[in-house]
Computed example of a mutant assay.
Amino acid sequence: MHTVWKGAISFGLVHVPVKMFTAVEDKDISFRSLHKDCGMPINYAKTCRHCDKEISPDEIVKGFEYEKDKFVIVNNDELEEIKDESAKTIKILDFVDLQEIDPLYFQKAYYLSPDMAGAGAYSLLLEAIKQTGKIGIAKVSIRSKSSLAAIRVVENCICLETMHFPDEIRSLTQVPNLPSETVLVNEKELLMAKALVEQLSEQFDPTKYTDDYRIALTQLIEQKIANESTDIVAAPASEGRSNVIDLMTALQASLDATKAPTVTDAPKKKKRKPTSKAKDTAS
């Protein structure tokens, strides 16, 4: 697996060097946008509407829009200066019980493995979390984004799950048409609903659940390929390639045109006819 982040877990005076790996895999099937007439993939160029031209990466800066069409520019050096210690350290601030954390806070999961000579400290933290049943709450910065994180154990691996900060969670008061807390429901209907919940209740087994849409879409694509469907198109050769070939041809033609003529290629000199003056002398 690809290493996403390298640093250390810090709790108290213990320092645990670790490497981070993404724990989940995105299996969504992605599509490219093609030109319907020829099958060529469509490019999405970054352009400036004011200058009416394509912009290269070194011409782009970061700007925060504080008012309509008014921006504050922040450069990369300034961003580096304000990074805190969490950029290279997962600092555990507290230990809490898992059931105290609402799943709404969780974002993305990562596996952490011991790095360098950190196996002893890694095992110590792993066993401490296992035996206390607690979850570490930490701060971490991954790819320039700071977040809260939960440090927990999955089998024999320390797992980090990024979390939202409280001010990132929207208030329920913004959700329209929610029922009142004092709403009355029919008692018989409630008993039947609870009985249905109990009937469908069992131990969680994640292997039971599959992405039916992704499976059906994969089968559809494979079937089109196997049947050599008319929906299969090949993009034409890109213009860049033909330009290279044309350039090479032009260069070769230029070289050929400037070659010095060889002996065999040199034009033959015509014999000069004697003049009338020469004839008179001969006579």
Rank of each mutant, 00 (worst) to 15 (best):
H2S: 12
L13E: 01
P17Y: 00
V18L: 00
T22D: 10
T22M: 05
E25F: 08
D28N: 08
D28Y: 09
D28S: 11
F31L: 06
S33V: 11
A45P: 02
T47W: 09
R49K: 13
I55E: 01
D58I: 04
I60R: 00
I60W: 09
E65D: 10
Y66V: 15
I73N: 13
E78Q: 15
I82L: 13
Y105V: 09
Y111T: 00
L112V: 07
M116R: 12
G118H: 01
G120E: 07
Y122I: 00
L125T: 02
K130S: 12
Q131G: 09
I137D: 01
I137N: 07
I137Y: 06
S144E: 13
R152F: 14
V154M: 12
C157T: 15
T162F: 03
P166I: 07
R170I: 14
Q174A: 12
Q174W: 00
E181L: 15
V185H: 02
K194E: 15
L196F: 06
V197C: 03
S201H: 14
E202A: 09
E202F: 13
P206H: 05
D211M: 02
D211F: 12
Y213V: 11
I215P: 05
L217F: 11
Q219K: 08
L220Q: 12
I221F: 05
S229H: 01
D231S: 08
I232T: 15
V244M: 12
L247A: 12
M248P: 00
T249H: 09
L251G: 03
D256Y: 02
T258S: 11
K259W: 01
V263Y: 07
P267V: 10
P267F: 11
K268E: 08
K271S: 15
P274S: 09
P274L: 14
T275Y: 04
T281D: 05
A282E: 07
S283K: 15
